[in-house]
Write a protein that binds this DNA or RNA. Sequence first.
DNA 1: TAGATTGTTAATCGATTAACAATC
DNA 2: TAGATTGTTAATCGATTAACAATC
Lengths: 220, 220
Amino acid sequence: MAKNSSVSVSVIKRLPRYYRFLGELLRQNVVRISSRELAALMKLTASQIRQDLNCFGGFGQQGYGYNVAELHHEIGKILGVDKGFPTILIGAGNLGRAIATHINFETRGSRLIGIFDINPDILGVEVAGLKVRDVAELDIFCRTNKPVTAVLCIPKSTTQQIADKLIRLGIRAFWNFSHYDLSTDYEGIVVENVHLGDSLLTLSYGINNLVTAPETEPEE
Amino acid sequence: MAKNSSVSVSVIKRLPRYYRFLGELLRQNVVRISSRELAALMKLTASQIRQDLNCFGGFGQQGYGYNVAELHHEIGKILGVDKGFPTILIGAGNLGRAIATHINFETRGSRLIGIFDINPDILGVEVAGLKVRDVAELDIFCRTNKPVTAVLCIPKSTTQQIADKLIRLGIRAFWNFSHYDLSTDYEGIVVENVHLGDSLLTLSYGINNLVTAPETEPEE
DNA sequence: TAGATTGTTAATCGATTAACAATC
DNA sequence: TAGATTGTTAATCGATTAACAATC
């Protein structure tokens, strides 16, 4: 059943996308789908879909395909969508506040239970239904509420130091938006570095190359 | 010189990270660095660094290594960091406003020149030094100012339609934050789909697996 | 049963790593 | 010159795709 030991990260990174597409199909009341049909929809190969799903178990049925509701549910279980891991957010600046209000944590395996900042001007302000607390309260808050995940929306200069402190306080997962590469190989700690700046630069490369070298073969 | 035809996306996605680390070294007044030293710093192999850089040309010198300032500058040129591609942002909700204020477009090849929304309550509000305009003005604005890039911070239901419209208005690049997969194979259009929700779900998977199956080999 | 489609093994492709001759 | 380190070719590794027997 649980074959999920050492599934490659390429596969894991595709799971949320499968989950999204299956959710959409479910909303459209599609009952069953074959790997071929799903592949066409998601612009993948049917082979890849079957390989990916078989890392976790045989969710399909020969001659029939996959039951959409069941597959959606199973992938949700693998991702832990309703685990509601208690989560805190550090840094209630522009980005932090937007993440807190814009992201639907509840449907993505998490539950936002605390927001922290150092800026006195912002303490007590309500964001996403939570009052912004002083980082000085972090110790007592973590001991009491045992958050598992920390969302970091803080300057790169303080990230490593805050991360170390949070690990000592029992945090086991980081969703890191700071411009700092948080090491991904702490024992027993999971890290998602986001890097929006890198994403924009990748786009810039694309534009630059579109304009600079549009013709692969000059015509004369 | 310009060997950059058909560089693999794996390599391209690493360029912004090289650029970041080299920028940091530059700030620390490091003059030269070998692929081995840089590899240790970035947790890559020296081989990979040399392979990656040689997709674009020989920036190093045998027996010496790489000049930090020069390499930083060259990668910046490849990424188009100072091209200042004119950019508009559609959707001035929580996320849109945070992106507008939080991202340093200027140092990442872009220049934010317009922000648009449909919500009458928000029109005219100043965000990142720009007054939020009505999407009804999009046509005239694009004809006048010829933006190249659009940042999409809009609901998934409207994304495809807005993207089609923007392509007709001359937009050639999308930085898409909506929960909709914008097709990545329009001819002559570049797309970066961000999907913060998928990122959070990937983290959730990680936590779920940390807790569910921590021991690879049970001890008895 | 016949048709369809999976689960899974084998073949291919691409990306990463290792090795080393070229050269500063 | 000798030592160091690149640029580049060759070897390895992993991920994707193709093929097909199993089976619903």
